[in-house]
Amino acid sequence: MNGWLSAAALLLLVGFAPTVWGAASGPVRRRVMAQNLATLAGCLVLLLLAQGYARPSYVDLALVLAVLGPAGTLVYARLLADELAERPARDPVARALGRAMTPLAAVCVPLVVLPLCVATGPGRAMVKLLAIGALLIGGNIVSTRALSARHATGHTPRGTGHTPQATGPERHTTGGQSGAAGG
């Protein structure tokens, strides 16, 4: 009973608090990536809180955040395309975040969702939890891709010259990854 709340507090401190710093300092790219990570961490905290307070209806909060969080990141990716493209990822934090986001989502979400599923037992609540997990992973992969796609467009001309080959494989991988996310 107590462990869920402790886990939520730990995740709030370790996962969410650094993103406040990340979103409040540095270049725009780092800030948007921090926002992306914050929605992931916040959603997992909300799931843990729902279990910790023994209120299944609180799961709706995580459900809404799981769809609106990536939408928010896509808003930034769309409307700050210039800022994201013009300032290349010289910031080590942004680069590390961009690389770590997808594995982080793929590891952390099951790490939280699967114990919650075991605790709730089979039923509609478990289906909801699994749906939230799938939405979170899919949304985070896509929004991270959206951010790094901008990164690729801004970076390629400077780094490797005007070679279409440089963008070709990138495009291929983005398509493949999203296919996995969508399925």
Binding site: V67, V142, R145, T174, Q177, S178, G179, G182
Partner: peptide
């Protein structure tokens, strides 16, 4: 990007 477009149409 096409993956983003596809995600939006699903989401």
């Amino acid at each position: 990007a096409p993956p983003v477009r596809r995600y939006a149409l699903v989401a």
